[in-house]
Write a protein that binds this DNA or RNA. Structure first.
Lengths: 133, 133
DNA sequence: TATACTGTATATATCAATATACACAATATA
DNA sequence: TATATTGTGTATATTGATATATACAGTATA
């Protein structure tokens, strides 16, 4: 099972955190359903060209947060996450992301109108080009 | 001279990098002009409740990138950055930020229309509430 | 019962952040 | 006009977080 997860070497966020965040997104968005078997830490570390310890740490943090469950020798599985928790988490995370973007763009010196225009343009391009990349 | 710089303790980006990024934004947005004296590494570290070494590292990286210049015993000053470089950097950085947001929102499972609506709403709120915070 | 797959634990290297002592430049003041 | 003081940036040593390789242990299956 190959998951749509990527890590950026140039990002300053820890690799384990990049993995953790994306896996959490896959769970709360429903792309990974309850009981699903996740890739083994070895398979994932090979896929992402990182250490087993790094994928392990991501899994462990998610287990501590109640999103997944690991069983020695068997594998790691998605736990049941209530629909309400999913929705609330999604919206909360989305708000945080958007808010940060607006702050960053303002600090770069863009006006409200410029921000508006850039977002419009980016969205149009995004909708059109998403499936060809 | 108090600069509009903040560091987030919960962010997983290194503190020196948060400072570096925001200072660079202030320079390329023109909010800090050529020759301007930056706060001393001690003043800034005190303001941000971090170590002198951390602010120092941000300044040093910016010096290596040609944005500022430090003089032993005197202080740190903004270097002359060409208008073209400023504009290009601004647009490039903005594009990177927006692209990342769209990717993140998609991974959270939002549809194009939902993303559109969320951004619209956030922008409206942003324009209205910006000056009251 | 061998082997091939799971997750787990230990030790090591590098990066991020810190406190503290050092060196250079401007300035107040005796 | 010395020189003490206070402001700059700089260098060293130490702690904690991040990432790694490698050896260990549990589980399923050929």
């Amino acid at each position: 099972m190959k998951l749509p997860i990527t890590v950026s070497e140039s990002s300053r966020e820890p690799i384990y955190y990049q993995i953790e965040t994306q896996l959490k997104s896959l769970v709360i968005s429903g792309q990974l359903t309850t009981g699903a078997l996740l890739p083994s830490i070895r398979a994932l570390s090979s896929e992402l060209s990182c250490s087993v310890i790094t994928t392990r740490r991501a899994y462990q943090n998610l287990e501590n947060d109640g999103f997944i469950e690991t069983v020695q020798g068997k594998g790691t599985f998605v736990k049941d996450v209530g629909q309400q928790v999913k929705t609330e988490t999604k919206e909360s995370v989305a708000f945080t992301y958007i808010d940060k973007l607006l702050k960053d763009l303002q600090m770069l010196g863009f006006s409200d109108m410029e921000i508006d225009n850039m977002l419009d343009k980016a969205l149009t391009k995004w909708k059109g080009g998403k499936h060809h990349e």
